[in-house]
Structure formats: C-alpha cells, structure tokens
Nucleic acid binder design. Structure first.
Lengths: 349, 349
DNA sequence: TTGAAAGCGCTAACAA
DNA sequence: TTGTTAGCGCTTTCAA
C-alpha cells in the first residue's frame, strides 16, 4: 500500500531505473537518448524497468545539464476588444501543435504594452527559453533588432518591413497577393468599381495589402481614383469610410484590409438598406470568426496560419541546430474564403 | 571587445557575482532570495555586482534544486471554426498576466482531441510544470478526477458538474445568473414572450443557463411553454430554431446560450426583414468579438474572465503552498453588455 | 551575518 | 557495448 502511494508521489529517477534493470545510470540515459548504442536485450531490460517505474526524465535536471529548456517563448497579446482580429487564437494553436511535433513547448509571457522588449530580457537571462517566436513585428519590431544583437535565437512572424536587409529568419503571408485575389474575385463577378478601405499609411502591412488591390485594378486598366480610403482599424471608421465612398464614388464592391473594417461596411449597408452580396459586394481580410458567423457570411482572405507555424518551427529548429542553419524568409500565399457578402453563388457562372 | 561578446553570450553565474562582490556564493543566493538576512552594505555590494554582470539566476538550476518549475500547464484548444466562442483568447491573456504577478509562466500544450488526458501525464512525470489550469471541464472532466488521484495540483475553470462532492479547487461563472440578467433586461424593456435557444440537455452548462431564463420568467408568472428550444451550438441550428419559434410561438425576444446561436437568430431576422432590436430583441452569451462588431451590436452576457484568472491563480498559490491551502470553489457573476440587438436606448426609459 | 559542504537528476567525456 | 567520473548552477543544511 504505502509503496503505491510513494510511487505516485515520488518520481522514479535514473538511478532507480538503473538499479531495477541492473545497469549503470549512463546506460539508462543512453537508452532514453541514444537507444541505438545499446545491445537489444539490454535496451529491452531498461525499457521494461522504465515502464514498471513509470519513469520520465526530470526536465530541470536535463535542462541544467544540456543548457536547453525545450521551451519557445511567445508574447501573448489578446485580440483588441471591438475588433475582429482574432488571428492569434488560431496561430497559437498551430504553433503549439507544431512545437509538440518538434519536441518543444510554448511558454507564454505577457506584453507590457509600454516596452515591447519587456519579458524577453528576463526569459533570456534566466535561460528559461531556447528561442522566441516574435509576432508583433508590425510595430517596426525593435525586438528583432534587439534579439539579434544579443544573439538570441528567434523567428519572426512578419517581414522586417523597416529593415529589409535584416538577416534573421522570418515567415510571413503575402498580403498583396491576398488583396489581389479578393479584387480579382470581384472583377470576375462583374464588378469594376471596386473600392479599397485600408489602414493609415504608417502601416506597411496595410500598404502591402493595398498594393494588391491597386495592381489588380490597374491590370484591368480600371480607374482607382477616389476609390480608396485609409482609416483606423475600427468598425466605426470602416462604416464612415464606406458611407463617404458610396456617396462620392458609387462603388459596387469593397475590399477591406481587415474583417473589422469590412464589418463597418456591412454596418453602413445595413443602415442604407443595401443587401450585402446583392446590392454591394464586400470582402474582408483574416477570415475571422466574425466573417464566418455574420449573416450571409463575409467573404474574406484567409491566412494559412497552420503553414506559417510549420515554417516557423522549421526555421526554429534550423536556428537551434549546431551550427545554426539560418533559412531565408518565406512568404506564404493566403487563400480566399468565399461567402455570401461577395455575391450569390449563381453570379460566379 | 571580446569581453563584451562573451558577456552577451555566456550568462554570469552565482560564482561570478560572488567573486566580483567578494562574498561567497551562498551570500549571493541569500541576496537574491532572502535579502533581509544580509547586512545592508553587503547586500548593496552584491546587488551592484548583479547589476554589473546582468545576472539572473539560471532557471534550470533553480528548478532542479527547488523541485519546482514555476510553470503552469494549460491545454490550449482553439475556438471552433464557424462559432463565435473565442473566450479562450481573453481568458488566456488574463491568466498569463495574473501568473506573471504571482511569478509563474504559462506553458501551453496541445489537446489531442481523442484522449483528454494526453499531455497532462507527460508533463507531470517530467515535473515540467508545478500545476495545471483545467478549462475543458464541460466534457465531464475526467482530467479532474485523474489529476486529483495522482495528487497533481490543479485548479479548474468550471464546476465539477458530474461530481458535486469533488474537493478540488475551482472557479466558475454563474451562467444561470447571466441568463437571468439577460431575461430581466428584456422584461424591463417590455417583452413578455421571451424565447430561449440553448444547448442539448446533455450540457450541464446549457441547462444551468436555461434555468436562469426559466426562473426570471416564472418570477413574473410568465408562461414559457413552447418558448424553448435545445439545439447544437451552430449558427444554422440557431437560425432554424429561431424560425420555428417565430412561426409557432411568436416571441418578441430571444435569449441564447451562446453568441453563436444568437447570430443564427440574427440570420433568421435578416432573412425575414425583421430589424434586430426594433422588431425582435436578441441577447447572446459570451460577449465575443462577433457580438461587438456585428451591425447594431449584439447584447450579450459577459464573463468576468479577468476575475476568473485572479481567483484561479489565488487558488493555485494556495494549493502549491506547504501545507496546501485548498480554498473552496468560487462562483463569479457575469455582467450584461447592452447593445442595439436588445432595443434602442430610448426603450430603457 | 556569512561561509563550507553536499547534492538535486541528468548527460558529456572518457575509460574499460 | 557498458561503466566511471565529473559537473551543469543552484539552494538547503549546518557550522563558524
């Protein structure tokens, strides 16, 4: 009885396994980490002992000895209230899953809002994580430069917009291609007066997406003058921009830099008794839950976050290898999820 | 030059600090963990050395020695596609922040979908985490029973519905109170035929919320017969249920067990050219991003996830203290976020 | 108030 | 193929 209790409470160690299997501690270690070094029947004996004792190597001891933690740090910032931007949720899940495959866990730390470097430094100095995944590079990522300077391994989700010659590994989604797909989708459905509602000029991501709309329009020799608006990423701004554009440029379709802005457009359509997809087409960006559940459904550009996670972890592993293998940046293509807001299915014929 | 590089690459250790400060390693340790034991000027000397070297205690070594990891495990399951249930995002952020205050970090591990115990066992045996936060207790939480049996510290977000005599600490939100608030809000706005669209009977959370609607109606001696529906948690099911209820019971308002179902109701209203908030009132549950950005806005019950995180971490700390202090379960009250879908502001007078 | 000794559990390096 | 030795960086215990 009391032995059972102890077995539950006190984890078996390498020594316990070695004693039970009648081998040295090092042999047990090899059985766990380099099984090919052992004679088959020794290996089996050790494995039996491991199973009997329910042994798992103590992480702290292993971490201390190997100077690794098998932990990836991720600064977790929540979606802003009142927006549709909930990419993080899907991305984090993909990252956690992909890290598991690679034998890593994800450690979350809070962003402090003021100092974008907060948190990184502590974890680094305590050698609490092996590497970081940096996501908020739209801020003009001071983290990237800072981490690179300290020699801290990391992979960025997002291009180094402000430092095109940066040498760190990154993965990003081609926003221009996404906006282009969205625009071409609307062109194929017969629209020619397609408006753009995007973010302010300071946002390189916004400008990138905008360029996709622009190039798709120009490729068809369509005028874009008076058809573009740059606003804050809020529902209200989107609604106001849509109202102004409808009044002044009479577009029949909108491509938006975010689902949040697209919801603003839907809001204006609703007020004006215009049917989305019927009277006016709308396409958003991010394929958020909002796009999925809003009545008639919001057609939206979807980022391949699962693939992003795969590529990020691949680069993480390369970066942590000795010697480090620094793979170049990688740009992934988004896809378009078509729903009712860009027109009834029949139109596509 | 090369010294600078080394300082960046190789972290200073306790010994380095001790040498620089001219004290023993133990004194440095005390300076970090029990500063009150040191003579003020010794303490200052040590602290100066710490600052000069940029020293932070190595986590692995500390973990090994203290047999703790200062890590809290959380199984991260993403929001289901096509639903509005994105509570996790907000909750995780609150938890991460609250854990930071308590000196912990959050370690994410993936749910495996099949075995709800997967992941917990590995982390436990490797002593990779000090405790867990268990969130998916709606499954009839086998994790809780299993973890309790193994003596693994954890706190549940969610009541032990299927084991009311369970002794583990938990924190939950009073769903019945939330639905009651929603119903009373509609009653105050003059509605009397208020329908309920909830989840199937197997869901104790759904039944709990339903009871809130029921009690609010009964408190006013209002009939509820024919006014309730139990369906799957999808937009379509919500839309269908709303259509049937409108045809057969002519309600003027709906209270829903989730924002997802409420969006279904909005869908049906949209098809029937009924104005939400004007012709028919709708209240959802969870105050998701969807509720926040959908045109006219969806009135919704909001869970106090920040407070939930605070209470959970408090219990976590109690549970990890020696001897453990097991605080009882705690039920928190939600609030109601009023938006356009439950009627124009003027009605409230 | 400070220091010395011991050891947490593991793996790298080397020896047998 | 297996075993021995040493030590990762820290904190606990005890002695000075």
């Amino acid at each position: 009885m009391s032995r059972d209790v102890r077995r539950v409470m006190v984890q078996a160690t390498l020594s316990d396994v070695a004693d039970l299997a009648g081998v040295s501690r090092q042999t047990v270690s090899n059985a766990m980490n380099n099984p090919e070094l052992l004679k088959p029947d020794t290996l089996q004996r050790v494995r039996d002992a491991v199973a009997v004792l329910g042994y798992s190597p103590n992480r702290a001891a292993r971490n201390l000895r190997t100077r690794t933690s098998r932990l990836i740090g991720l600064r977790f910032t929540p979606a802003q209230e009142g927006t549709a931007n909930a990419m993080m949720d899907r991305f984090v899940h993909s990252l956690v899953e992909e890290c598991r495959v690679a034998g890593y866990h994800v450690l979350l730390f809070p962003g402090d809002g003021v100092d974008p470097l907060a948190g990184y430094d502590d974890l680094l100095r305590a050698t609490a994580v092996d590497a970081f995944v940096v996501t908020d590079t739209y801020l003009g990522n001071p983290q990237a430069a800072w981490l690179e300077e300290r020699g801290a391994p990391f992979v960025a989700f997002g291009r180094p917009w402000d430092a095109p010659d940066a040498t760190h590994p990154w993965v990003d989604v081609d926003g221009a291609a996404g906006a282009r797909m969205a625009t071409e989708h609307l062109l194929a459905r017969g629209h020619t007066r397609i408006a753009w509602i995007g973010w302010r000029k300071e946002s390189p991501i916004g400008e990138d997406r905008r360029s996709g709309w622009l190039s798709a329009m120009h490729a068809r020799n369509l005028s874009t003058s008076g058809l573009a608006s740059r606003v804050e990423d809020t529902v209200n701004s989107g609604a106001e921009a849509a109202a102004v554009l409808l009044d002044e440029a009479a577009p029949t379709a909108f491509v938006c830099a975010s689902d949040t802005l697209a919801m603003g457009v839907l809001h204006t359509l609703w007020i004006r008794q215009l049917a989305p997809g019927q009277d006016v087409a709308v396409v958003g960006f991010d394929d958020s839950q909002v796009a999925q559940v809003v009545p008639v459904g919001l057609t939206s550009v979807r980022q391949p976050l699962e693939d992003v996670a795969v590529e990020i972890v691949k680069r993480l592993q390369g970066r942590l290898r000795l010697p480090p293998v620094v793979e170049p940046g990688k740009l992934l293509s988004p896809s378009l999820t078509v729903r009712g807001s860009s027109g009834p299915g029949e139109w596509s014929s």
